[in-house]
Amino acid sequence: MSTSSSAPSRQILLDLFFSVLRIRRVQEALAARYDQWQMRCPIHLCIGQEAVASGVCKALTKKDVVFSNHRSHGHYLAKGGNLKKLIAELYGKETGCASGFGGSMHLIDRRAGFLGSTPIVAGTVPLAVGAAWALSMKKKDSIAAAFFGDGCFEEGAMHESLIFGALKKLPILFVCENNGYSVYTPLEERQPDRPIYKIAQAHGWEASSANGDDVLEVYIKTTRAVERLRSGGRPQFLEFSTHRWREHCGPNEDDQRAYRGKDELPLWKKHCPVAELQNQLTLKKILTPGLLASFENRIRREIEAAFRFAEQSAFPPRRLAERIYASS
């Protein structure tokens, strides 16, 4: 992993492409198998939003920690979360990343620095600030990051977190994935017309916005933000516009419900984060057909192994009350 702000190396470009492709294929596999009724939990697919997860996490190190929200599969995978444990978690199995207790909306992989995702809007935002506070108290040079959506700006916890992050000048990166919708409600019905990142700016954060469907742009912006944090800069806020292709929750497309404009989805698909990077890298001859095929094969085998692992795993032991409290 690199923190250089010069143009991404060939290896980084390929890593980024592999990451968006892998997240896409995992999501598609989840959607394809959802009707088998083995994943008995709500799933919030991030098809269309792979670039933010991949670009941001590539700019972080393993020691940096992240928190996420309900739509967290991409963040989890990009940060290095274990795929087998993800699928097992969706299956409710004891080998899952949360021992089968969390399901799709509560993912964790501490070894990868993925400290948790939850479905309450803005629920993990203060946790990330607290983790950054702990890192600064322990004088570590790691940073903490929070992924969240545009809806967070309607929650008090977001503004409270911005205040403390700036007050203590914490090593914290906020990543706002603005996909324009909270479930089926467009941003215009929920928030006044002003750029979200300017609110963070007003709280004293260094903030900007960028195209979140362009993984290179995400990676470069984040790399610079992380460099500033590591050299003692102000808290960093990045707003990325991005797009959720499928329904809010579930495996299907839902454009026929007409809650968004007819031209929106086709336009987003034209700027598909996976296809755009694939085309660029192919043109530059960095990605050859042979390499692409080997990526696809590797990912397919990994996904098949993960589903097999989940199927063959057992449900958690039938003990509950003793799990309520941690013992010292």
């Binding site: 629920g123 607290g130 506070w133 108290m137 205040i163």
Partner: peptide, 21 residues
């Protein structure tokens, strides 16, 4: 002292506790 932000600060304190504070 802390900002008058009880919910956020509860989450922030908890987030710190996840890293051993």
């Amino acid at each position: 002292d802390m900002p008058l932000a009880e919910n956020g600060m509860t989450g922030i304190a908890m987030g710190a506790s996840l890293l051993g504070i």
